[in-house]
Structures are given as C-alpha cells and as structure tokens.
Lab assay of single mutants.
Amino acid sequence: KELVLVLYDYQEKSPREVTVKKGDILTLLNSTNKDAWKVEVDDRQGFIPAAYLKKL
C-alpha cells in the first residue's frame, strides 16, 4: 500500500472529506484525480486536496 505525508492541516468541508493534521502519515487509496486524493484516516475514507499531500 502507498503512504502519503500530510503537509498542512486540513479541515473537512464536506462529508466526503476527512480532517488531517500536518505530519500525519496516511494510507493512499486513490490518486487518479489530480485535485483530490482519497485516503484512509482512522477507519474513515475520504478526500483531501492533493496539494496537501506528498507521496512517500
């Protein structure tokens, strides 16, 4: 599985998104959309803007 590093805090703005903190390391589920990547956070799945993430 692929991991990503969170570069900036992000507060979810819709039910399809998830809230993350800078420095979190998350499982990347889908990065086919260049604008928003799907990740898993504490058994929740949701989207975060790709600009907030860096592949490890």
Rank of each mutant, 00 (worst) to 15 (best):
K22M: 08
D35M: 13
N33Q: 10
K22T: 06
I48C: 10
V6S: 00
V41Y: 09
D9E: 04
L29I: 14
V20A: 13
D24W: 15
Y10K: 00
K54H: 11
K38H: 13
L29M: 06
Y8S: 09
Y52S: 05
K55R: 11
V18L: 15
Q11N: 14
D43G: 15
A51D: 10
L53A: 06
K13E: 07
N33M: 09
S31F: 06
L5G: 01
Y52A: 09
P49R: 03
K21Q: 08
K34A: 13
S14P: 08
P49S: 04
Y10N: 03
R16Q: 14
K1W: 11
L29E: 02
I48V: 15
V18D: 01
N33D: 13
A50F: 04
V39T: 00
L7F: 02
D24I: 05
L3R: 10
D42Q: 11
D42I: 08
K22I: 04
V6Q: 00
R16F: 15
V4M: 01
Q45C: 13
L56E: 03
D43Q: 11
D24P: 01
A36M: 15
G23I: 02
V18F: 14
K54T: 10
N30R: 05
A50V: 11
K54V: 13
E17N: 07
L56T: 05
K22N: 03
K38G: 04
D42S: 11
V20Y: 09
S31D: 14
V41I: 13
E40W: 09
R44G: 06
L5Q: 07
P15F: 08
D9Q: 02
T27P: 09
A36P: 02
K55P: 12
P15G: 11
Y52K: 04
K54N: 06
Y10I: 02
I25L: 06
V39S: 00
Q11Y: 15
A51V: 13
K38S: 08
L56K: 02
K21S: 09
Y8Q: 14
T19M: 04
N30H: 07
L7N: 01
V6P: 00
F47L: 07
R16H: 14
G46W: 12
D24E: 12
A36G: 09
V18R: 01
R44F: 08
D35G: 10
K38Q: 14
E40H: 06
A36E: 15
L56I: 13
V18Q: 03
N30D: 15
E12D: 06
T27K: 13
D9L: 04
Y8F: 13
D42K: 13
D35L: 13
Y10H: 04
K21V: 06
D9S: 08
T32M: 11
E17Q: 06
T19A: 06
Y8A: 14
T19V: 04
R16P: 07
T27S: 08
W37N: 01
E12I: 13
K55Y: 08
K22A: 13
S31E: 10
L7A: 02
T32S: 13
D35V: 11
W37H: 01
D35H: 14
P49D: 05
L5A: 04
V20M: 02
K34V: 12
K13Q: 13
K38Y: 15
A50H: 06
Y52F: 12
T19Y: 05
V39E: 01
Y52H: 08
A51H: 14
W37A: 00
N30K: 06
Y52I: 14
V20N: 00
D9G: 05
I48W: 02
S31A: 12
Y52G: 05
Y52T: 05
L29S: 01
I48F: 03
F47H: 06
L3M: 11
D35T: 11
K21D: 02
A36N: 12
K54Q: 14
K1L: 11
L7H: 00
R16S: 14
K54L: 13
V18P: 02
V39G: 00
L29P: 00
L56F: 08
T27F: 11
D9F: 05
A36F: 15
D42H: 13
I48L: 12
L3A: 05
